[in-house]
């Protein structure tokens, strides 16, 4: 029960819902950048929602199946082929031993999730199979998959070929993508003008954006309120005395290019944070390609909590639809 990697794609990693509980030690939660897409894929193929799947960024891998399996590809849109036959995204399909799964050029989104019945059964590390490449943890020997790797599969559950996620429950970013931000502890560090233009400006995703953080550029630089830097803080006005970095926190080194920390984030450091992208919108970031336009939208805690409930309801609706 295994799948052999013919071509790995650009950077394809084993991901599940991550390993919460070690961030205070500097080990991030990790896991799928788009958690909803991972859950959807697992539901479609009859896995537990937290089973491990492949996260393929920008480019799909080529995989040879050595056993019959049910597969679903969710998240980013790219043409999906079993041998020469095209398959639908967000839909469970069968693949026979000896057949090859491959992909065409990315059409929209950034990360496709390839869920396979039984789940990827690489050894868990600290309670998760998620690949944290910087820490050489999880996945296949702590790294992205490579040609010739053989990925073990777990015991398959029951699934229905042809099951599909209703289109209204598939979530992806619009254009411009809107990311809702709750201003945070260091909000007072920038001027009122900067507080306004941060949310007015059109930003674009920088090509450096990765699993650690998504960088944005092309907005106006932020001006800081003048102060004498406190003891322990660096000399740049964007420096603070080291603090904890939450997932989704938006740091702006030098006041120029905001970075939203994502699943493989560092846990702390000395940059001020303008605020935090709300949890309901974190999945959307995982689907942003380089150079796409983004707006940050200022929200309050009530809106953030409502959005969180809406997102949970959406996952419930998906469970009900696929039961």
């Amino acid at each position: 029960m295994s799948v052999k990697v013919i071509k790995p794609g650009l950077l394809t990693t084993v991901q599940d819902l991550g390993r919460p509980g070690y961030f205070h030690l500097g080990i991030p939660m990790g896991g799928a950048m788009d958690r909803l897409a991972l859950r959807a894929g697992n539901m479609l193929v009859g896995n537990d929602e937290d089973a491990a799947a492949l996260e393929a960024v920008f480019m799909g891998p080529e995989l040879a199946f050595e056993a019959d399996a049910v597969v679903a590809v969710t998240g980013a849109e790219m043409p999906i082929f079993v041998d020469d036959e095209e398959q639908q995204g967000w839909t469970a399909f069968e693949i026979k031993a000896g057949q090859v799964l491959s992909f065409g050029f990315l059409k929209s989104g950034a990360r496709a999730y390839i869920a396979i019945s039984g789940g990827i059964d690489t050894p868990p590390a600290l309670g998760s199979r998620s690949t944290y490449a910087i820490g050489a943890l999880g996945g296949v020997n702590g790294r992205a998959i490579a040609a010739e790797d053989v990925l073990p599969l777990g015991q398959a559950g029951t699934s229905k070929t042809g099951a599909t996620v209703p289109p209204e429950l598939r979530r992806g970013p619009g254009s411009p993508a809107e990311l809702r931000v709750l201003p945070g502890l260091y909000w007072h560090r920038i001027t009122e003008a900067a507080q306004e233009h941060f949310f007015e400006d059109d930003w674009t995703v920088a090509p450096e954006a990765d699993r650690m953080g998504y960088r944005f550029r092309n907005g106006r630089p932020l001006e800081f309120v003048e102060r004498e830097q406190p003891f322990g803080a660096g000399s740049d006005p964007s420096n603070i005395v080291d603090g904890c970095y939450p997932y989704g926190s938006v740091q702006v080194p030098g006041g120029t290019e905001p970075i939203v920390l994502h699943r493989d984030a560092v846990s702390g450091g000395g940059y001020f944070m303008i605020g935090t992208v709300i949890s309901a919108d974190m999945d959307l970031i995982g689907q942003l390609q380089p150079h796409v336009p983004v707006k940050f939208v200022k929200v309050d805690m009530d809106t953030a909590l409502d959005a969180r409930h809406e997102r949970a309801a959406q996952i419930d609706a998906m469970r009900a639809a696929l039961r």
Partner: peptide, 9 residues
């Protein structure tokens, strides 16, 4: 010849 990836050329 097409770009296999999104990014900067």
């Amino acid at each position: 010849i097409q770009s296999p990836l999104p990014g900067t050329f």
